[in-house]
Nucleic acid binder design. Structure first.
Lengths: 147, 147
DNA sequence: CATAAATAAGACTATTGTAATCGTATATAC
DNA sequence: GTATATACGATTACAATAGTCTTATTTATG
C-alpha cells in the first residue's frame, strides 16, 4: 500500500517536463524518449490528464501537449485525483449508507483516519509541480522512482 | 492507491479494542466476534503484530493477546511498518544503486517525493492508538471502513 | 493424562487492481 | 494524400492483496 502508482509517477514526470517548456507543444514521443518512459503508458496517462483539464492537446502532425495552467497551480493532489479513482485512504465516503457496512453504526476508527487523511492530502495539495521543479534545481538530487 | 489495506484496518481495530481492555488477555475470537471481522484474517494479523512486538501472546486455553506497550506509545506508523513490507510512497530507497534504475542519474522527482513522504509519515508517527480512541470517545462518529 | 481451547504457521486459491500491449479511429500540417 | 500526431477501447499479463484451510503446538483444567 501507499505506493505512488506508475500513472502518478508518469503524470508528475511528464507535467514537470512540460513545465520546463512553457507554452510549447511537446509530443508524447519526445517526453517518453527523454525520460525513458513507455510511450503507450505515457500516452494514455496524458490523455487522462487532458480529459481532466490539466493539459491541453493538439492533434495532428506537430501536435502535442502543453500545460493547461501554470505549474504553480498544479498540485500533486490534483494530479492524483485526476489519475486515480479515489484518493482517500479509507474506502467509505461520508455519504455511504449503513447497508453497505455492518460496522457503520459503531465504527471507531474512521473518524480519526479521515483526520489523518485530511492532513496528508492538505500537504499534497500544497505541493505544486513548480515547487517540485524548484526543489530539484536547487538540490540536484540523483534518485529514482522504480526498479 | 493510497488505501489502507485490510491488514492495517484490522490491526488498528484490534489494537484499539485491546487498548480498551488494558492488561487483560483478549482472544482473537472475542475480537473477531465483537468487531465482526474475519477470524482467520484477524488471527494472522495478530500473529504478525506479535512477531513485531506490538502485542504479547499467551497460548493455550484462556490464552489471548494484550498490548505489549501503552496505547499512547503505539503509532499508526508503527502499525503500518509492522504489517506492510514497505511504508514508503516511492519504491527506491536511498541505498539503491544506479543499475536498478536507469533514471537514477537524473531523476527529478524523487527528492521532492521523499520530502512529501517524510511529512506524511511524520503525521502517522504522531498519531497513536490512544489518540484515536480518545478522538472516538469524544466525537462518537458513526462511520465505516469498508464495504 | 486426556481434552478442549487457544495461538502459530505455512500452503494454497481467489480476487482485484495495476501495468502493459495492441489495434483502430481521428485530426491536421504540409 | 500522406505522414505524424492524439484518442480510445479492448484485451492480456502480472502482482499484490485477500481469503481459506490444514496441521502443529501450547496450556489450563477436570
Amino acid at each position: 500500500m501507499f505506493k505512488f502508482s506508475r500513472k502518478i509517477e508518469y503524470g508528475i514526470l511528464a507535467l514537470q517536463y512540460m513545465a520546463g517548456r512553457k507554452q510549447e507543444l511537446v509530443s508524447a514521443k519526445e517526453i517518453a524518449e527523454n525520460l525513458e518512459l513507455s510511450f503507450d503508458f505515457l500516452a494514455k496517462t496524458l490523455q487522462t490528464l487532458m480529459k481532466r483539464g490539466l493539459v491541453a492537446s493538439h492533434q495532428g502532425i506537430h501536435g502535442g501537449y502543453l500545460l493547461a495552467k501554470d505549474a504553480d497551480k498544479i498540485s500533486i493532489s490534483e494530479i492524483i485525483r485526476s489519475l486515480e479513482k479515489n484518493i482517500s485512504i479509507v474506502e467509505c465516503s461520508p455519504s455511504i449508507d449503513e447497508a453497505s457496512c455492518s460496522r457503520m453504526k459503531n465504527c471507531t476508527i474512521r473518524g480519526p483516519l479521515l483526520k489523518i487523511e485530511k492532513k496528508m492530502l492538505l500537504y499534497l495539495e500544497q505541493t505544486s509541480i513548480a515547487e517540485i521543479s524548484q526543489h530539484d534545481k536547487k538540490t540536484k538530487l540523483e534518485i529514482k522512482i522504480r526498479n
